[in-house]
Design a protein around this nucleic acid. Sequence first.
DNA 1: GCTGAAAGTCGCCAGGT
DNA 2: ACCTGGCGACTTTCAGC
Lengths: 160, 160
Amino acid sequence: MNIEYHLDRVDYDILRLMQENARINNADIARELGMAPSAILERVKKLEQKAVILQYNAKINPAALGQKLLSFIFIRAADGIGCATTGQALAAIPEVQEVHDIAGDDGYLVKVRTADSAALVELMRSSFAKIPNIISTRTTIVLETVKEEQKLVIPSEQQE
Amino acid sequence: MNIEYHLDRVDYDILRLMQENARINNADIARELGMAPSAILERVKKLEQKAVILQYNAKINPAALGQKLLSFIFIRAADGIGCATTGQALAAIPEVQEVHDIAGDDGYLVKVRTADSAALVELMRSSFAKIPNIISTRTTIVLETVKEEQKLVIPSEQQE
DNA sequence: GCTGAAAGTCGCCAGGT
DNA sequence: ACCTGGCGACTTTCAGC
């Protein structure tokens, strides 16, 4: 399945504006791009429908919710080839923000946010331990996050 | 500097709704919570001002922009203690989505999105190579992303 | 695919409790 | 901190090109 996207300059401009501030209104986008608001609305709906725009998120300060510890955990699993059970079990844990199937060690890289190290240990004892195929884990603690964004590089000129 | 946040149940509800859909309007939030829109507006503005809400993002499908490769790169640097030069240089690269200062190997964990492996190599040759203090790098390729969200766990009942 | 107009809502700011 | 009320602006739909 290889869906083809046909995005033009206006689409890129919309994506760029939306990526900077998802709460920008259609009228402002329209003014910025010199078009009618109804045209923008039409395009945005198509971008959503084509799953180019996946969702709109508010980025919340983790410290405000007392979630001061960020960790990356490498997990080796005994899954068979193409078996995604362990990955899905990991993804089901709310504190787990990301689960990536990585090359090399038939394993996963997982990003986890907890209040502190005690909460991390508790999470691993309670949730991770219940996942059958996990062989071993290696945890890396983040001391400080310098940058954390989901923003993609959007083509700036020309292109179709 | 340890800012104190005083979030109550209504704030958590607002954050929960905003986190699910940042483009929800004040009137809908107000209806959901049984309050007047003006009260919601007031609270949202305070949450923004207190940096509880950091920003509103549109999550864009990387495949739609041809960015099919996700990689994590461990970088060892010769920075002195508390010297953040290398981290900032890494953060300045647009393809770099995340830079974390990690414990253990006086190094950084960096998350990078590129079109393909050729683009990654090119990026490392052109951008990374210009950062003086980098000693070595170890790259981990993501085969498949099972989950990728920034959503935090928000307290669901009681609490102040 | 875009424009322009019309109807329905909403954002936002008073003022008051 | 919250509600009510009101005006200007926005959203959304639809006809027409």
